[in-house]
Amino acid sequence: MSAVRKLQQRPVLLEVSGVSKSYGGQVGCLDVSFSIRPGEVLGIVGESGSGKSTLLACLSGRLQPDTGSIIYDMKDRGPVDMLLLSEPERRRLARTDWGIVHQNPRDGLRMDVSAGGNVGERPMAIGARHYGNIRAEAQDWLQKVEIDLTRTDDKPRTFSGGMQQRLQIARNLVTKPRLVFMDEPTGGLDVSVQARLLDLLRGLVRELGIAAIIVTHDLAVVRLLADRLMVMQRGRVIEEGLTDQVLDDPHHPYTQLLVSSILQV
């Protein structure tokens, strides 16, 4: 079966069980469990305040959950509970094995470093030293995300919002992460850029076999991008399954409301 390995031969990459996080009396997310395999794209939808971003922050190590476990299959050590890792270990993991694409590209980019530098920084952080190679790799990725190479030495401050988002994606994917977290990756972009970006992301996920967890409130985006979908309401996962199943045959009242509220263009 040549290039594409089957999913069943791939072990679980991330196993989340019973993750909860509250802010004082306020529920962030409640008892969330799921697992994801390499090559799978999981979408998380729900209205604002449903706990999507809290969950993503817990998963990506930016927020300590109150309870639960997050087991990640590390390349060299096998399955490890993320919550028991030391801070430097977790940071190293986030730099090498993971990618985090923020909703606002300014949170994920270094605005005072050139575009090429932004992409080259991550290979450098894990030991690449040959300037020529780093620059070549950076330019290869700029081309992949369709940023004109004449802009290599420009700072992202001079880029449009869509270009900044594409640059952020290049910066995250250059080290071939095994797991990518994305918070509204196409939010705030105009629709023409959004379409290009969706196609780009889908191609990259397929080509590199990476797993991705995408938080969004845009149901059209998850339909095109995600294999699986979780719907959140008030911190809980109320419905989950195959993306098209959840969207075409929703069973929970809230999911039915969500799906029936989509505006038709």
Binding site: L198, L224, R228, L242
Partner: peptide, 24 residues
């Protein structure tokens, strides 16, 4: 779900009434 994705990839093809693809 991952198994269904695999079954759809290799075993079952489905022609819907309408084409739904990424724009552009």
């Amino acid at each position: 779900p991952w198994k269904v994705v695999e079954i759809r990839r290799f075993t079952i093809g489905y022609v819907s009434q309408f084409l739904r693809v990424i724009p552009r």
